[in-house]
């Protein structure tokens, strides 16, 4: 039986593709790479790599312990490299105004009841539930994507991360 090798990416080893232009502007394809973005970002800087109206996919470098966040809607985190812990707390009272979009950074340790903890490795997806506060922790640098809505913590630097020349 033939053995196949699945090619994953990582912060240490990724091979970025490209847009080969025939007759178009490469910027139309908003082409970037999650590992490339995470490699050059500050820990937990949540950089938009995809945007569709108000919705975004953020890429982030996981390293050390993040601040606390909360959102008025579900979010999801997908670990793309490394091992990332997610700590969840059920807030005693809402930390963000109803209808607020995207993640809101919390100034202090949230008051509430401990919900649990996730440990995500490559390919693992976790729920960041509405009404909870969460923070990330990674002993070693890792990379993750977050399915969310554009908000206060979303960083947009498209010209820096995307292919602009043919």
């Amino acid at each position: 039986m033939t053995n196949y090798q699945t090619r994953f990416g990582s912060l240490q080893d990724f091979d970025k593709g490209r847009v080969e232009i025939v007759d178009d502007d490469p910027k139309n394809y908003v082409f970037s790479n999650v590992f490339d973005v995470a490699s050059s970002s500050a820990p937990y800087e949540r950089v938009a790599v995809a945007k569709n109206f108000e919705y975004v996919i953020e890429a982030a470098r996981a390293e050390g312990t993040s601040g606390w966040y909360a959102a008025d809607h579900d979010e999801f985190v997908l670990c793309m490299d490394g091992e990332i812990e997610v700590h969840l707390v059920k807030l005693d009272k809402a930390a963000v105004e109803p209808g607020t979009q995207g993640a809101t950074p919390l100034a202090d340790m949230p008051q509430g009841r401990k919900m649990g903890r996730l440990v995500l490795r490559r390919g693992h997806m976790g729920l960041l539930p509405r009404g909870a506060a969460y923070r990330f922790h990674a002993n070693q640098p890792g990379a993750m994507m977050i399915q969310t809505i554009e908000g206060l913590v979303t960083v947009q630097k498209w010209a820096e991360i995307c292919q602009t020349a043919a």
């Binding site: 090619r7 990416g9 847009v19 080969e20």
Partner: peptide, 30 residues
């Protein structure tokens, strides 16, 4: 998310070629 996918992109109306997008693990494109 893994491996490689190549996309042939053409004009929607005419079918004329516009680009090839070569995507590898971690690549994002619209």
């Amino acid at each position: 998310l893994t491996d490689e996918i190549v996309w042939d992109v053409k004009d929607k109306a005419s079918g004329k070629n516009r680009a090839r997008v070569i995507m590898k693990a971690g690549d994002v494109s619209c």
